Structures are given as C-alpha cells and as structure tokens.
Simulated assay, not measured.
Amino acid sequence: MTQERTGVATFKGNPITLVGPELKAGDSAPAFVVSKNLLEDASLGDYAGKIKLISVVPSLDTGVCDAQTRRFNSEAAGLGDDVVILTISTDLPFAQARWCGAAGIDSVITLSDHKETSFGQAYGVLIKEFRLDMRSIFVVDKDDKLAYVEYLGEMAEHPDYEAAISAVRALL
C-alpha cells in the first residue's frame, strides 16, 4: 500500500496529501522513470557519476515554478560539467519543450512525471488531490545518495536556492 502523508504541506493554506515516503539526507536516492519526450524515458541511472540537483515544480507555467527553473538555469554555468540540473514536473513533454524555448532555458534538463508519477511517488512529492508533484529540491551525490532534501510546506513558496546550491558546491 502506498504511503500517504497529511498535515505536512499546503496549497495557499489549504491542506494537501503527499503520496510516498519522506526522504532524508543520507538515504539512497530512489530509482524513477520519467519522460524526456513522448517516446523516450529517463531514469536516475542515466545521470550516473554526476551530481544531480533535482528541482521539482508543480507546473512550469506558474510564476514560482518559472522563477525557480530560471534561477537554477542561471546557476548551472557556474557549477561545471560534474553537475546536472533536472527539473521535474507533471507537465506534458510538449509543454515543457514549448516553455523552455520561450524562456530561453538551455542548461536545465526538463523531465515529465506525467505518465506514471514514478518520481513523485518514489520521492514522496506526489500531491494526491491534484496529481502534481510538490515543489521540492533534492541534491544527489555521484554515488546516488541524497546529500540535501527540501520539502516545502507551502506549494506557493520559493525553495532555499542558496542552500541547494551550497549543497551542490560541497560535493564538488
């Protein structure tokens, strides 16, 4: 049976239910399968040997998600080739590609959790009420251990960008 967590997050002050476990720094990063596009999948293993900053957003077409993705895109250049930044949302791959083109996003890889919500369930961020992934940040080291985890308590708030980037830099 899938774990459900209540009382840990809200959307504009209204309680929401997160599906999946609450992960902590030091845990092994769970496996997942998401879509690069309609025909091609991606998994954690595709980024083996890299430090992974996983930025999770409910939808790229909202203000905070847009700002979050743009911020990590601008930080990417200063982090080097050992780091990959993945933005995961439940947006369709078409919408992600359109948004990235319009926003000039070229240093972040967008991946879609729309098909199976594999990522959302494995990382404990799937919002039961909306079938969206809750805003969160995960930094995964080269050995696929979680080095940093931030679950936001309110979906409409920004993550701690500086703490996430510092966690990545500490692994370099």
Rank of each mutant, 00 (worst) to 15 (best):
F72Q: 05
V84F: 01
V57Q: 06
P58M: 05
I85Q: 09
S89Q: 07
D66C: 04
C65E: 01
S59Y: 01
G63N: 08
V56C: 06
V84N: 13
G80Y: 05
D81C: 07
Y47K: 12
Q68D: 14
C100E: 03
S74V: 14
T69I: 14
I51H: 02
I88H: 02
A76L: 05
A76H: 02
E75V: 03
T62K: 01
S74M: 12
A97Q: 11
V83D: 00
Q96W: 08
I51T: 00
I51G: 01
V64T: 04
L86D: 01
G63R: 01
S55G: 01
L60W: 12
P58Y: 01
V57W: 11
L92A: 15
D91N: 01
G49T: 10
G78V: 11
G80P: 12
A67G: 12
G49C: 15
D91M: 04
L79S: 07
G63T: 09
L53Y: 06
W99K: 00
G80K: 15
S55H: 12
T87I: 06
L53M: 04
Y47M: 04
I54N: 06
L44N: 14
L79W: 10
R70I: 14
A77S: 12
K50A: 02
I85H: 09
L86Q: 09
A48T: 14
G45H: 14
G63C: 06
S89W: 02
I88W: 02
D91W: 13
G49Q: 05
I54V: 14
D46Q: 08
V84M: 06
P58K: 06
L53I: 05
N73F: 15
I54K: 09
R98Y: 09
V57E: 13
G78W: 02
